[in-house]
Design a protein around this nucleic acid. Structure first.
Lengths: 245, 245
DNA sequence: CAGTGGTCTAGACCACTCT
DNA sequence: GAGTGGTCTAGACCACTGT
């Protein structure tokens, strides 16, 4: 009765194959964000398995952040955006308890071969080109971060047709909706440096003043690198908060 | 048949109460690290619940890192030591790829009422006293961090009988072995400041030079605060790396 | 009220580990 | 072969959300 086509992989546990099947429906857009997936009862009929097995597959997807359960309402495809709890990628608050999303202003977009270290991080060959964005983050009209962003051209070609002014304040949901690229995790490195002339000018501080440098490599659910970025912020107003579990 | 005493909390799900009960056995040392806990079949008899419920409780504890399963062998209490992967609390490497554990040197240990913000973080009343440690972290004989550590006296009274020289380089395994206090998670805040006279002297830098300040609140498995510490390091040699998931 | 996910049970069979 | 955790089933009742 496997009307859900659960062949694919060989001798994996049922719930794993189920998870893959459902993940596929999500990434392929068949089940869309903020939309309820079929109920557990329906899923048992669709796939011909017991409720417990469905639940276990859904457990995995919930743990992975792809689904969200709401008792009495249903199970929903989670929009990996940053409105709710998923504020993971903007912990460097500039003012105390700043909950607001800073404005993002893309200054320039070019296509060029990435520097060697960026190519290495993104897993690109020496010849391949990449998209570079230069961007400011502002709070109350004041520049708090200067960002240099590198994206593999292959994944993000559709970004080249968009007006710079139409880039949204949060890039990750934007990547998702425009390019189907979903960020799942990231690795960040913080260091402190002195501002060079360009950064100092953009941040409105004196050259040589201390700045915080955040280098981030963002990965997809397949753990492949998707974006590399380096951000600079004035050190004296900087605060970085994180929970380690 | 609840021979396992599962009263405690009111109307929590069974598997949650089970989890708490089992976590208690672990933190109390009744189930010791690297030792197998009773089998699922035994646990069902002990607590008078179904296997599925036991499994769900164990699932939670495994997810929390307290237990570890080994098919065909049993379920074991995990030693939350730092030899293996659990290197979570020393990401601020000073030299590139520095894998070595820096030396820790406790300069002083006093018992005094904590400052207001520390008492608040640790959940202590205004009157209660706390243990304060002042400590240096050194790599190759050079001071890289200056630390101010506060501990609730009630939990750490046994530390007062130990020679300062006998404090180990990694405090968290030390807390575990001497005081039965296991750190499960932490919350860190990074900022950049200018070195005051005392910090500058300890770090061997000039007063007013930029320093990185890390404030950390470390929690136990019961999510109660256990330790608060503030570390200072010279900004120019500082590197903080973290994986965000 | 009907429908949803959340909890819990009781038992089956399998894959692995150790002796 | 005996014992362990890993998977899977089938069905029960509950708590919550919507109408």
């Amino acid at each position: 009765m496997n009307s859900g086509m659960l062949a694919q992989d060989e001798r994996l546990p049922l719930y794993q194959r189920l998870r893959d099947e459902m993940a596929e429906k999500i990434t392929a857009g068949e089940w869309r964000p903020d939309q309820a997936i079929p109920t557990e009862a329906e899923l048992t009929k669709i796939y011909g398995v017991a409720v417990g097995t469905i639940r276990k597959a859904v457990d995995v997807l919930v743990a992975e952040g792809l689904l969200e359960r709401a008792q009495g309402r249903g199970t929903f495809v989670r929009r990996p955006s940053f409105d709710g709890s998923l504020f993971r990628f903007f912990r460097h608050l500039t003012s105390e308890g700043g909950r607001t999303v800073p404005e993002g202003r893309v200054l320039s977009r070019t296509v060029e071969p990435p520097p060697e270290h960026v190519a290495a991080e993104l897993g690109l060959t020496a010849k391949s080109k990449a998209i570079r964005l230069d961007r400011l983050r502002l709070i109350d009209g004041l520049v708090v971060l200067v960002e240099e962003i590198w994206l593999p051209k292959a994944r993000f070609a559709s970004l080249l047709n968009i007006e710079l002014a139409d880039f949204e304040n949060l890039l990750y949901p934007f990547y998702e909706s425009r390019c189907g690229q979903v960020i799942a995790s990231a690795k960040e490195t913080l260091t402190v440096d002195s501002a060079n002339a360009a950064v100092a000018k953009a941040l409105g501080i004196k050259e040589g003043k201390p700045v915080v440098v955040i280098e981030r490599l963002a990965l997809g659910f397949d753990r492949k690198p998707i974006e590399w970025r380096r951000s600079h912020g004035a050190a004296d107003t900087f605060r970085y908060q994180i929970d380690i579990c």
